[in-house]
């Protein structure tokens, strides 16, 4: 991060770092931050611009550390209901860790996560399993069950959580598979599909219960530009049809421009800034502007 000092960037007025951030007091490592760096959060205004709605998910002062490495460091974020939100950030900034906290697969060391006002870390196992029924999650590689064909994978949540007959289940599954262009692949096993097909099958499975919240962990990774565009279109269409809080995690700006109503930029385990996408693309924050315009000059360097 020595490059930062060499650049002609006017930093924000220096604020005395909180004790846990000062290099003398910090006994943990933040990925991408030199231990000698006094204030790694000088561009993090944490400003949250008004999106004109209510938050479905609120992340409050969340800290998460693995060993001595602190991935989330006092993260605050609100994701609006009935909008497609995007959490953008360079690789290794804790985007996937954030998703796992939201669905209760990881617990924060400090802070809280509220889903529709209910605290996820304070839920019992049974409450957590019940709460997760309102979630759909598309994993990076689809996370399909290897022992089931595509039809059974998509039908699985319906068989687990509804009393629908096989005929009704078949109708829903086939409709979802048609939407994602996999109507002909129902009998195939996951290992017979390409990465993009697995992702689309995972998308169909995530939507099959009509969840109120859908989370996408890098839906565009490993896809060619055309398929990425088609997947974005599909996400947009399904959201228009079903509504709800959609959160997409990515570092692809094309995806952000296509589908995002709301953008939050994450770096070093904290939100730099968040707000409606049109406003954020015009942000005068050095970091946000550099990242969202993919510029080479700015606070973000190769290291």
């Amino acid at each position: 991060m020595a490059d930062i000092d060499d650049r002609s960037v006017e930093p924000e007025p220096y604020e005395e770092p909180a004790p846990e951030l000062g290099r003398l007091h910090r006994d943990y490592v933040i990925p991408g931050v030199s231990p000698d760096e006094d204030n790694p959060y000088r561009w993090h205004t944490g400003e949250k611009r008004d999106h004109g709605g209510e938050d479905a998910i609120e992340v409050i002062d969340v800290v998460k550390q693995f060993g001595r490495t602190r991935i989330l460091n006092g993260l605050n974020l609100g994701l609006p209901d009935n909008q497609i939100s995007m959490v953008l950030g360079p690789s290794g900034t804790g985007k996937s860790v954030l998703i796992k906290h939201i669905v209760g697969l990881l617990y924060p060391d400090a802070g809280d996560i509220l889903v529709h006002g209910e605290s996820v870390p304070n839920m019992t196992d049974d409450e957590l399993f019940e709460m997760r029924k309102k979630f759909g999650l598309l994993f990076q590689d689809g996370a399909l069950f290897g022992s089931m064909n595509i039809y059974d994978n998509v039908a699985f949540p319906l068989r687990q959580h509804t009393d629908k007959s096989e005929e009704e289940i078949g109708e829903i599954v086939n409709r979802r598979l048609r939407e994602v262009g996999l109507a002909e692949a129902t009998e195939k096993m996951p290992n017979e599909l390409s990465g993009g097909m697995r992702k689309r099958a995972g998308f169909a499975r995530a939507l099959v219960l009509d969840p109120a919240i859908v989370l996408f962990d890098e839906p565009d990774s490993g896809l060619d530009p055309v398929r990425t565009a088609l997947l974005c279109e599909l996400i947009r269409e399904v959201h228009e049809e079903n509504g709800g809080c959609y959160m997409v995690i990515s570092h692809d700006l094309g995806t952000a421009r296509r589908i995002a109503d709301f953008i939050a930029v994450l770096w070093k385990g904290r939100i730099v800034e968040s707000g409606p996408s049109a406003e954020l693309f015009e942000s005068d924050n050095e970091f946000v502007s550099q990242f969202l315009n993919a510029e080479t000059v700015g606070p973000l360097a190769m290291d």
């Binding site: 697969l105 997760r132 999650l137 994993f139 590689d141 996370a143 399909l144 069950f145």
Partner: peptide
């Protein structure tokens, strides 16, 4: 282990299955 690596266990939990 293979299910864990392929994130199948996480997927199960997210689908509300213990």
């Amino acid at each position: 282990g293979a299910r864990k690596i392929r994130e199948e266990l996480d997927a199960l939990q997210v689908l509300g299955v213990d």
